[in-house]
Amino acid sequence: SKGEELFTGVVPILVELDGDVNGHKFSVSGEGEGDATYGKLTLKFICTTGKLPVPWPTLVTTLSYGVQCFSRYPDHMKQHDFFKSAMPEGYVQERTIFFKDDGNYKTRAEVKFEGDTLVNRIELKGIDFKEDGNILGHKLEYNYNSHNVYIMADKQKNGIKVNFKIRHNIEDGSVQLADHYQQNTPIGDGPVLLPDNHYLSTQSALSKDPNEKRDHMVLLEFVTAAGITHGMDELYK
């Protein structure tokens, strides 16, 4: 796709999030870079409003799984890469995230190029959380598991539907599940690639910047598309 050509090198990323969870309002600002050749993201996020009212790991899918245009699609799968094909005009990404036995996040993001920078601007609203639950009670460990993110075409809306389940580790050794339902639709009216069913395999590492006084998260992530085999004719070339 034409959009794919915008991702040949390292691309700067800007992320802006405004959130409200159970009436606790907050903002997060992030910057870093993405390299789609390797499916690599390096980002640093800062809570610009003081202390973040929710655990950082609960925002990873909104912040970095928010820029799935940096996923590495192998050559034989490039015609299934909706995310890059929607660029530079970008796409709207909407999600509902259900935390098992707790509340939910609803998010709406616009992901697009502004100049040479890929920008992810998000509004997040969280409701029905227990004040002493795993999320508002800050009981999650500061780490992140690997996940597969399942993608299918949504021809009606000229976009994709995505769903997956995140496993958050809790300090007591148990797990907090979070079910994600995602819809992506193009902002522009140019042609986009509608994929066959496949998935993104994601690995994320969270860390801290020892010199950063503000509440923050440093993230390194690798994302690769998989799940579609080479056609038989490919094998015999």
Rank of each mutant, 00 (worst) to 15 (best):
F7S: 03
N120K: 03
Y65C: 00
A205D: 06
L63V: 09
Y91F: 04
E94A: 09
V28A: 01
K157M: 13
V11M: 04
G231C: 14
F26V: 06
N120D: 02
N211I: 06
N22S: 05
G137E: 07
A226D: 10
H80D: 06
V111L: 11
K25E: 05
E33V: 11
K213M: 09
D154N: 13
I228M: 15
N104K: 11
G50D: 02
E4V: 10
Y105C: 02
I97F: 00
F99L: 03
H230R: 12
M232V: 12
N143S: 11
D18G: 08
K208E: 05
K213N: 03
I160V: 15
A226V: 07
L43M: 15
K51G: 03
D75A: 08
V92I: 12
L235R: 11
Y144D: 04
D172V: 06
G231S: 11
P12A: 02
H168L: 08
L14P: 00
K25Q: 13
Q176R: 03
A109G: 12
I160F: 02
S207C: 11
V149G: 03
K78N: 04
P195T: 05
D189V: 12
N145S: 11
A86G: 03
S71G: 13
S27T: 13
T49I: 02
H216R: 01
V175E: 11
R108C: 07
S174T: 15
L177V: 15
I127T: 14
Y236N: 15
F113S: 01
W56R: 00
E94G: 03
D35V: 05
H147P: 01
S71R: 00
H24Y: 03
G126C: 04
H147L: 03
P88L: 14
D101E: 09
Y144C: 11
L59R: 01
G9R: 09
E171A: 08
Y236D: 14
L140P: 02
N134H: 04
F83C: 05
I166T: 09
Y199C: 10
N163H: 09
L43P: 00
G188S: 11
T48P: 02
V218A: 04
K106Q: 13
L52R: 02
